[in-house]
Design a protein around this nucleic acid. Sequence first.
DNA 1: ATCGGTGCAAACCATTTGCACGTTA
DNA 2: TAACGTGCAAATGGTTTGCACCGAT
Lengths: 155, 155
Amino acid sequence: MVPNQSKLAFSLQKIKDLGYRLTPQRIEILETIIESDNALTVQEIHAAIKIKHPHVSLDTIYRNLSTLTEAGLVGQINLQSRESAKFEFQGKHHHHHAVCLSCKKSFCLDDCSVSEAFEKQMKEANFRPVTHIFEVYGYCSECQESDEIPIQAGL
Amino acid sequence: MVPNQSKLAFSLQKIKDLGYRLTPQRIEILETIIESDNALTVQEIHAAIKIKHPHVSLDTIYRNLSTLTEAGLVGQINLQSRESAKFEFQGKHHHHHAVCLSCKKSFCLDDCSVSEAFEKQMKEANFRPVTHIFEVYGYCSECQESDEIPIQAGL
DNA sequence: ATCGGTGCAAACCATTTGCACGTTA
DNA sequence: TAACGTGCAAATGGTTTGCACCGAT
């Protein structure tokens, strides 16, 4: 497991390399995401940062999240619902997530082997793939135990 | 291939069975989606219906799309971008799509075999899957020929 | 000294909602 | 005739944008 310090160092370097500037806000956002065990919503990131730096605005979070995503340092989770979209630090290891419909936590899946089955079809159709998304939605072990599984609005 | 008439009949029955009412608007929307070769945006559906029935409002499209999705008769495509989300008739055959980043058309992929690799992980983590999403983004054969491939904002 | 980044406030805009009326079952 | 569904208009709210100032390089 790569320690958080090296993740940060790597990120700062990448930001520089891409010609972006290193602002305190940007670094703070990055640190917040790296330190967090779970993926965070925009609001959660904002809240976390406001504790130390009350002046940082929500716009800045949005703008930086977008910048950091472009830079490939941050990835978005829970594409299904706009309300509970979350962001996590993007390691180099390509992977996907399982998202709990009850507690909204996300769980990393080991690898990505989804493409294999589709490679052939892509070639046949002469479709040139660039990216893909894959996410599983369901109920995590905790939520299966504790709650009755709630009725979900049309997913 | 199931003819459109039988798709419609099946759909109307299902709507009844679920206790929803059969309104002209609802039927019209359903027909529009069934007749279309491609998946349609909300706006496109609205436009198509307004030709025959100018009074049908956009709200009704939204409300019915939501109802029909709950009923499992309609599925959403292109989850990545909220602007170009599209809807198609949901056959019984579970499948996914490839979406062209240039022309925004969507192409059906044969089957869904993505889950296999993840089944084991799910069991181990005691995560109970309910649904999943999978979509490929790239460039279709036409767009590869005709255009220079445009620069895409951070996907 | 630039020009990118930030904060503030205002704009945006797709989608949702309240309400009264029309329709289905 | 009792809900449900629709149309209209207004509200909503997360996200984006314009602008002037600040600060990293």
